[in-house]
Amino acid sequence: MRHSGVIVAEVLETLRKMVAPGVTTQDLEKCAEAEIKKKKAAPAFKGYRGYPYCLCTSVNEQVVHGMPSKRVLNDGDIVSIDVGVLADGFYGDAAITVPVGTVSDEALRLIDITALSLAMGIEAARVGNRLFDISSAVQRCVEAEGFSVVRDFVGHGIGRALHEPPQVPNFGTAGVGERLKPGMVLAIEPMINAGTYKVKVLNDGWTA
Rank of each mutant, 00 (worst) to 15 (best):
R49I: 08
F132G: 00
L131R: 00
L12R: 01
K39G: 09
G177Q: 01
I78M: 07
D27S: 04
V149N: 11
C56M: 15
W206A: 04
V59H: 00
K40H: 14
E164K: 03
V19R: 05
M18I: 02
A119Q: 11
V79N: 03
E29W: 04
W206N: 04
G183L: 10
G5N: 15
A125C: 14
H156I: 09
N129P: 04
G92S: 09
R140V: 15
V85G: 02
R160I: 14
A9P: 06
G157L: 11
G22F: 02
V63A: 14
A208E: 10
V201D: 09
G76N: 05
R2D: 15
T114V: 08
I134E: 11
A174G: 13
F45W: 11
G172D: 10
N193A: 13
T114S: 12
V19Y: 01
S4I: 02
E178A: 08
G5M: 13
L131E: 07
Y91E: 03
G195E: 14
P43A: 10
Y91G: 02
G128H: 03
K70L: 14
D112I: 01
K200F: 12
V83I: 13
T25F: 04
L118N: 08
G175D: 08
P43L: 03
R2I: 15
P182G: 03
S104T: 13
K39M: 15
R160V: 15
M184A: 06
H163C: 13
R179L: 15
M18W: 07
A187F: 10
E123Q: 10
R2Y: 14
D204M: 05
V72Q: 06
V23D: 04
V79H: 02
G128E: 07
S80A: 14
R71D: 13
F45N: 01
R130S: 13
T57V: 13
D204H: 02
R140H: 13
Q167R: 12
C56S: 14
G177E: 06
G172S: 12
H163N: 12
A44M: 03
P68N: 04
G92T: 08
K70I: 11
A144I: 03
T14P: 00
I113S: 06
T14H: 13
V63P: 04
G92N: 07
M191A: 07
A119M: 09
L28C: 07
